[in-house]
Amino acid sequence: MSNTPYPERPRAKSVGKNPVARFFGTLWRLAVLWFAWPTTNLIVWLSQNLKFPVWAGGDLREVAMRLWGVAWLTFVWVLLWGEVTWTNIIVGIVFAVLVMVLLPLPRVPIEGRVHPLAAAKLLLTLIGSFMVSSAQVAWAAVKPGPPPLGAVVRVHLAIKSDLVLTLAIDYINLVPGTMVVEIDHLRRMLYIHIFDVRKQSQIDSFYRTMAYVERQFIKAFERDSEWHPSPFHGVDDDYHHVPFSDRRRVADEERHASQGRLRRRLRGE
């Protein structure tokens, strides 16, 4: 039996992050522990204990919103002049303060909750509708034959929030070939001009599109389970004349559409 000692086995290398990744990972954790958390506690303490005069807003959130308004109006002023100088910035701040003090806008209530995935789907739908409608308008402008036949149709949207209704109107106006020409605010009725409605199928397609837009805006911004009327003016279903049956209709249409998609998927269509 040989007395030769066993050769020393090579040590296994530790498997893990490289030094650069470990450094930035540690730096991120330290930033959370030593900066973000104390900063959050400071903001909460200031909002609970710091008192602001009534003319400045009364609380930290209102002061922050007013400072943001001054900053935005100043940015617009400098943008209009087209040159970033201290004179334009100072004059912009002065005009921004005067506008917010002498011409205050009514408060816009936030009464629902934003769902990012549903909002992203709505944005993608807007981009797709924009491309399709642009192609349709361009083809109608160059093809031979009689000019397109336009019409104004009436559409009811079961949307309760003024802010969400404004977003829906902007959505409709951004799509080529459609334009909101009149709004019945109390009954939530829109009168929309359509570019080409020579066939009944085009009108039916437009109403289906409006029903889809209505469902998507409700899913993205004001689901019934998360609806909290604003305390500023007491917005509710009765105020906006949006009966529960219309909201239920939107939910039933969405459920039927989901069931139809599921059946088609099971049939392999």
Rank of each mutant, 00 (worst) to 15 (best):
N173W: 04
N173Y: 03
P146T: 08
P147I: 01
L186K: 05
V142P: 06
G112D: 15
P146A: 13
L103M: 00
G128C: 04
V153G: 08
I159S: 04
K143T: 12
T74G: 09
I183C: 04
P109K: 11
P148F: 08
P104A: 02
V76N: 10
L174I: 08
I183W: 05
K143P: 01
D162G: 12
I169S: 01
L122E: 02
L122I: 00
L157V: 07
P104Q: 02
G112Y: 15
D170P: 00
L80A: 06
N88L: 00
A151S: 13
L102W: 15
V152D: 06
A151K: 11
M189D: 11
A138M: 11
W86M: 14
V153C: 07
Q136F: 04
Q136E: 13
L117A: 14
I159Y: 06
I93Y: 12
V94E: 09
E182C: 04
K143H: 07
W139N: 10
I93H: 12
V181T: 09
V181P: 04
L174K: 01
W81G: 07
T87H: 12
H156F: 02
P148W: 08
K121P: 00
L163V: 02
I110D: 03
A119E: 09
G150P: 07
Y171K: 05
E182T: 08
L122K: 03
I110H: 12
S134D: 03
T166M: 03
V91S: 05
D170T: 02
E111G: 07
F75A: 14
A138C: 10
V84S: 08
G112I: 12
V114A: 14
T74P: 01
A118K: 15
V153W: 05
I90R: 04
A158T: 03
S134Q: 13
W81C: 02
I127M: 09
P148E: 06
F130A: 11
F130S: 14
S161C: 07
A120M: 05
G145Y: 06
V101E: 15
Y171N: 09
P104L: 02
P116C: 11
V78I: 00
K143E: 10
V155K: 10
I183P: 04
A119R: 09
V153T: 09
V76P: 05
K160C: 08
A158S: 11
R187C: 01
D170F: 04
G82V: 09
L124G: 12
R187H: 06
P147K: 10
K121M: 01
L98S: 02
V132Y: 10
G92K: 10
K143I: 07
H156W: 00
L103W: 00
H156T: 00
M100T: 01
P106M: 12
G112F: 14
P176L: 09
E83R: 15
R188C: 07
M189W: 07
I159Q: 08
M179C: 01
P116S: 14
L80H: 06
K160A: 08
I90K: 02
K160E: 08
S161G: 06
F95C: 05
W86S: 09
V175R: 08
P109S: 15
T87V: 13
L123P: 00
M179S: 02
M189P: 03
V181E: 10
L126A: 14
W77C: 05
I89P: 00
R113Q: 15
T74C: 13
S129Y: 10
A119L: 15
